[in-house]
Amino acid sequence: MNWMHGAWAVFEKDVRLELRSRYAINMLLMFVLAALLLVLFALGQTPVSARVQAAVLWIVILFSGAVGLGRSFISEEERGTVLLLQLNTHGSMVYAGKLLFNFVLVLVLNLVAVAAFVVLLSVAVPLPGLLLTTLGLGALGLAGATTLLAAIIARTANRGPLLPVLLFPLLVPLLLSVVSATRAALPGGAGWAGAQDELLTLVGFAGVVITASVLLFDYVWND
């Protein structure tokens, strides 16, 4: 089987399964909306600085990602389809397919979270292009780091709650860059010129985690 074809087949399978049950997407969206509303209730009428706004947005996104993305390999173990995938595809195809699926999921999640955030907190966004670039690069780094860790936790005994523990320390560089880049896109921010370093760091981070994942994935997958 040709590589692109195999990776796309894994992606397509995941999308079809997701559309059948809509479990992951519903859970992620509910989580984001519930968390944002909780933050709003906690803040009340207090005006919040751009820094806090960006921090709140990304903390909510990271937590919902850590809750929702861990499913991607556990579900294979639960359905007993791991052997089937191992027989029919190469490890890197599975990784690429899952990475693409998780990336799309995080991207949708990010867009919904930002839309809710802009409406609910009534934030003005003078530079929507910069915000979208940040969201895209942040989603790539988040999906890249989470996909390998999801494969790792599918191998552990009590699968669920371990993912945030493994994930959050690794995401600190991503969180710092993404928060300052988001702040640059909000009113009073530094704009494109001020976010250059952060965007480059995000590109580097996504590149590093995806490269490392491609190299390491086979060792987790072919147990």
Binding site: I152, L170, V172, P173, T201, V208, V209, S213, Y219
Partner: peptide
């Protein structure tokens, strides 16, 4: 052993960001 080794290497790959970039 295998899973821990993978995690350790994955974490080591992101560490330059913590020590040099950020």
């Amino acid at each position: 052993a295998r899973v821990a080794a993978v995690y350790n290497l994955f974490a080591a790959a992101t560490m330059p960001f913590l020590t040099y970039v950020v």
